[in-house]
Write a protein that binds this DNA or RNA. Structure first.
Lengths: 337, 337
DNA sequence: AAGAAAAATGGGATCGCTCCCAGATGAGGG
DNA sequence: CCCTCATCTGGGAGCGATCCCATTTTTCTT
């Protein structure tokens, strides 16, 4: 027996498949009585239109592909959520793939999506410095929006955050609270976001006339563990450091542990700032000051742009959108004035 | 111009579409020279087989549907991760839908998947008490595995954790450390998991001869906020409570805040235990004792069962799998002996 | 009540692929 | 050199829908 087709429905209802098709897509032009009857037959046969067949002719799948570097990373959750909301509202499903922090894997995901499974792709990219992987031929003509990365090619819209300014703002905040010996803990060296934040840090330090800044930069790798280890180094360096700026929240959390283990109090003995504003920051003791990325908003907007370009709504999409990072003040910065 | 089809490739390579099809699916029986040539043409035309067309005839989509109650809930991440790993290994994509904690929505997701978009469904269910929604007709014959819920119908495999035993173990642990006035903070009243855990708590208390247990049960709703509020109540009740058992970790985290706000020390002044073992528990201060659910493993196994039944590997799938909850000891229980 | 316009229905082509069966080609043995 | 058998290749049907166009039915005018 197997699944029933549009033809079975037509036969049982005593009409043609065209008419059935009309009621499925409720296009009108069907007598109410016929419509009712067909609907009833559909139910009795437990009929559901086959979406492959449908996609084959309409060239629409009504699903959009989403690629993230790591499904289980807290960081990406809000992007996904934002995208989901818009997707649901516009009647799109999401197909989720993870690139597992691998450029090749990312390309592979893109290829998957190039096989007509999706109507468009929302790519939350690992932001590798200098990776020009976007001449991905399988994507030809496929609507694409990239989040968390900025491109200047003016054909693929990108959504990102002003990381440099974030670094600048955070550092300024510490400077304004009287700190001068401010350490900066970087993320992975090949990640643009980390580099940009460091750039902002440098600028602020330079402007403030703190000459030592080069010696205050410590390399981390975005993990909590590295935050812990680097912080131990900082504490043992004995350079008179009074504040630490971490390139992301996870490292800050590791840092907090290290600081507590040393028996020091935050912010009395040491001030610190993180970056990203993960939700769980408010659960940490102490909740700490950090720079917020509007991740929900970014996912939301990204999805909107994508759907715009899928459906050729002729409002012209921006080539790139850049959000500010906002300083969220909590209890981890002590004024030293 | 648009995308090229198998026909374009055939024409340009001077062969028939059948031969092209053979090399696409590398079924052999193609002369090496022809194969090379076709491959080359495919590349030059930037050809990618259309997966809808393919699914239409093969009746396979190579994607599996995954439904979770909330994409952004930390709790579900590890399930997803486990499922993903198996999916990738077996060459399946994942289509992710979220039911947003709504029975109707869950049914709707199921329906989506019933339209031939996926080869099987892995459902992480909101575990509503007494919801018999699984007579979902659109699923007819669709392989399905349910996680985080136990069913006795013996046709849909379920994977769950022994929540009652978890409640029992946690309570025993506190009792063995000399606590008797142990409060229990429940989760949502309509969630089976919460009820079962409470059941275990009751049993342990009864066995230990603590008669007051009914007065020590406080209703929460699984959120951090409710954990905070309930804990304040507990602290102000003045019943001589020395330990609190939370039905999940999030509430425990809220509880910790409340306790700290009162100026009390954990575990010196008050002991506590959570439930689930979220990854972020180790980031909390203090890291607390909790009962681990093997969520990664559950997702992993669930996906395995699902793929088994999709591919009719004739090893018979179990009707249900139940894992133990394991007590993970950290620094939140003080012995009072 | 007849004719025109509008509404409802049916039929066939088509989307891009797989799969079965038939036919062509090539190698090897007598 | 012919026949057999294995290896390659081609052609047509079919998967389950949509969509266009033609045809039938209904409704409305006058």
């Amino acid at each position: 027996m197997g699944k029933s087709t549009i033809f079975d429905v037509a036969k049982k209802a005593g009409v043609s498949k065209s008419t059935v098709s009309r009621v499925i897509n409720n296009q009108g032009n069907v007598k109410e009585k016929t419509r009712k009857k067909i609907l009833k037959v559909m139910r009795s046969l437990n009929y559901h239109p086959n979406s492959s067949a449908r996609s084959l002719v309409t060239k629409r799948t009504n699903t959009i592909g989403l690629i993230v570097p790591d499904i289980t990373d807290f960081f990406y959750l809000q992007f996904i959520k934002g995208a989901e909301v818009v997707g649901i509202k516009n009647n799109y499903n999401m197909m989720l793939l993870s690139s597992r922090w691998d450029v090749e894997e990312e390309r592979y995901c893109l290829k998957m999506f190039g096989e007509g499974r999706v109507d468009g792709v929302l790519l939350i990219s690992g932001n590798w410095v200098g990776e020009p992987y976007l001449n991905c031929p399988e994507l030809e003509k496929m609507p694409l929006v990239i989040i968390d990365r900025t491109l200047n090619n003016h054909v693929i819209p990108t959504i990102n955050v002003d990381n440099k300014n974030g670094g600048y703002l955070g550092t300024r905040h510490l400077l304004e609270n009287g700190h001068r010996m401010i350490a900066f803990v970087t993320g992975l060296a090949n990640q643009k976001a980390s580099l940009d934040r460091m750039e902002g840090y440098r600028q602020a330090m330079d402007e403030a006339g703190v000459r030592e800044s080069e010696n205050l930069i410590y390399p981390g790798d975005f993990t909590e563990k590295s935050g812990y280890q680097v912080t131990r180094q900082v504490l043992e360096a004995g350079k008179g450091i009074t504040a630490i700026f971490y390139a992301n929240d996870l490292m800050a959390i590791g840092g907090i542990k290290a600081i507590k283990d040393k028996g020091l109090i935050i912010p009395d003995d040491l001030s610190l700032i993180g970056c990203d504003d993960l939700e769980l920051v408010s659960l940490i003791d102490p909740p700490f000051t950090t720079l917020r990325q509007p991740r929900y908003k970014m996912g939301y907007t990204g999805m909107e742009l994508l759907i715009n370009s899928i459906e050729h709504k002729d409002n012209i999409n921006p080539a790139q959108i850049i959000y500010h990072m906002a300083l969220i003040q909590r209890n981890s910065v002590q004024s030293r004035s």
